[in-house]
Simulated assay, not measured.
Amino acid sequence: MSSRAAIRYAKAILDQAREKGTEEVVFGNMKSISATLNASKELRSVLKSPVIKAEDKRASLQAIFKGHDVSTLSLIDLLVDKKRSAILGEVAAAYLKLYNTSKGIVSAKVTTAVALDPSLDSKILAKVKSLTGSEEVSLEHHIDPSILGGFVLRIGDVQYDASVSNQLDKVQKEFSKRI
């Protein structure tokens, strides 16, 4: 969940990108930032640390995201200057959400125990399109072996849990009621 500050920064960067006509470029940058921060616990720790100097954070982020759009690099500088570098990931996530909303793109997340084959992936995509009534769907894939089988589909605030682990939990609860 994004903080109000992160949403404000995301709206500002989206407005700036619209003015410059670089919405899609910044969208790609924000996907990159989000993926990088999600993959690196160490980087998130560096950004949150009050011990690490702002200039060191700036230098690290500028090196990691070298080649990104000027607007994105300016955002990084601004967050570091305002001592808010810890919310960079939240800003990126909020931007992605705002961008998708502005373009009418529905975002869905499917979690499976193993990678989906292309035919099943297209069936899930078609189901999301029919459920939402939208032709533009962004489907994010996650693999979580703990669900054992089946899938968990999340569209906005609605979640469809057809996982084996969920069904086993239901059976266990039913047994414990009867005992």
Rank of each mutant, 00 (worst) to 15 (best):
R154P: 00
S49H: 09
N38R: 11
G28R: 10
A35L: 12
I64N: 11
E55F: 01
K57M: 02
L98R: 00
K177C: 00
L148M: 15
K177H: 14
L78F: 02
A86S: 13
D157Q: 10
I155R: 03
V25Q: 12
A92G: 06
Q167F: 03
A54F: 01
I7H: 07
Y95D: 00
D56W: 01
L153S: 06
S138H: 15
K41H: 12
L148Y: 01
G133S: 11
K123P: 15
L139M: 10
S134H: 12
E140I: 10
G89R: 05
V91R: 02
Y9F: 12
A126W: 03
S71Y: 05
S32I: 12
D144P: 13
H141D: 01
A54Y: 01
S119M: 10
K123G: 03
S130K: 15
A108I: 06
A5T: 12
V70P: 08
H68K: 09
Y95P: 02
A63D: 15
V26C: 08
L47W: 04
L43G: 04
V164Q: 06
T132E: 14
S119H: 08
E90D: 11
Y160S: 01
I147D: 01
F65S: 05
K97D: 14
H142P: 00
F27I: 06
R44D: 05
I76D: 13
Q62E: 10
V106M: 07
K11G: 02
K82W: 02
H68A: 13
A17D: 07
S85Y: 01
V128M: 03
E24N: 10
L61C: 06
L125R: 14
R4G: 14
N38S: 14
S34V: 01
A126D: 13
R84H: 08
S122H: 13
K20D: 05
G89T: 11
S74L: 10
I52F: 05
A115I: 08
N29G: 05
L73A: 05
A39F: 03
D157M: 02
V164A: 09
K20P: 00
V128I: 11
L73C: 04
T111A: 03
K20S: 10
V128F: 04
D69S: 09
I105K: 04
K20A: 14
L98W: 04
S74H: 15
V171S: 03
A63M: 04
G156N: 12
L75C: 07
T101P: 00
Q62W: 00
L75G: 06
S49L: 08
